[in-house]
């Protein structure tokens, strides 16, 4: 028996919009810790890890660890039927091949349930080791989204370099080249407008912009994004989900020519 009641149902809607273009089918895992997912894109270049901690739910009942295979496009279709202010409850019975999403309007005058078929998904769970990163950049998520979008109109790849000067995003394409440098900036009115660069060692890595742009679909989840870089490791692009957890995207670097 599974019953997860999320008062801020819009968070789940946003999570699905953030990941559904990257991953088609995925197993959602439910345990005492929370509601989580780990999945790779079809070409195994990127990985998404989601955690919604049990404490973030108003009511969280998960009698035993369970893994539920879902088609994310179908799940998104159903969650789009929930209002932005709706409370969403995820319900499942042991051994059932379906899951129910219940949507309650804030005034309790409309209650809907949508039943979705589950599927068997063969997925490999990867162990993600704790790592020391050479550089960690924390910046406004909208700014990161803007940079990825702007650069992708010039080139296909982005070189992200962190030095003591700041963080540089560069691209090159048929029509020319572009470089965007951000310096650390903590003298802002609001903390969510700050850019904070933590550098242990200079680092420079090349990534496919197509994936970076896909990650920025998570922008509505968080005003800030954290980009962790280490040579010889996938970059981590993390969007924290207020009070609840995170969506982390891992992207394997391209090999430098």
């Amino acid at each position: 028996m599974l019953e997860l009641r999320l008062v801020q149902g819009s968070l789940l809607k946003k999570v699905l919009e953030a990941i559904k273009d990257l991953v088609t089918d995925a197993n959602f895992d439910c345990s005492a810790t929370g509601f989580s997912l780990q999945a790779m894109d079809s070409s195994h270049v990127a990985l998404v890890a989601l955690l919604l901690r049990s404490e973030g739910f108003e009511h969280y009942r998960c009698d035993r660890n369970i893994s539920m295979g879902m088609n994310l496009n179908n799940m998104s279709k159903m969650l789009k039927c929930a209002g932005n202010d709706d409370i969403i409850t995820i319900k499942g019975d042991d051994g059932s091949d379906t899951i129910t999403f219940m949507f309650e309007s804030p005034t309790q005058d409309k209650i809907a349930d949508f039943e979705m078929k589950l599927m068997d998904i063969d997925s490999e769970h990867l162990g993600i080791p704790e790592a020391e990163y050479h550089a960690i950049v924390r910046m406004p998520s909208a700014e990161f989204s803007r940079i990825c979008k702007d650069l992708s109109s010039i080139g296909d790849t982005v070189v992200i370099s962190v030095t003591k000067e700041g963080v540089k995003f560069s691209t090159r394409g048929d029509i020319g080249a572009a470089n965007i440098v951000l310096r650390q900036n903590t003298t802002v009115d609001k903390p969510e407008e700050a850019t904070i660069i933590e550098m242990n060692e200079p680092v420079s890595l090349t990534f496919a912009l197509r994936y970076m742009n896909s990650f920025t679909k998570a922008t509505p989840l968080s005003s800030m994004v954290t980009i962790s870089l280490s040579s010889e490791l996938p970059v981590v692009v993390e969007y924290k989900i207020a009070e609840m957890g995170y969506v982390r995207f891992y992207l394997a670097p391209k090999i430098e020519e």
């Binding site: 070409s43 993600i128 391209k254």
Partner: peptide, 14 residues
């Protein structure tokens, strides 16, 4: 064109 690596080259099956 820079060749693309895969995630599985960095993280192993748990």
């Amino acid at each position: 064109v820079n060749p693309q690596r895969q995630i599985t080259a960095f993280f192993s099956k748990s």
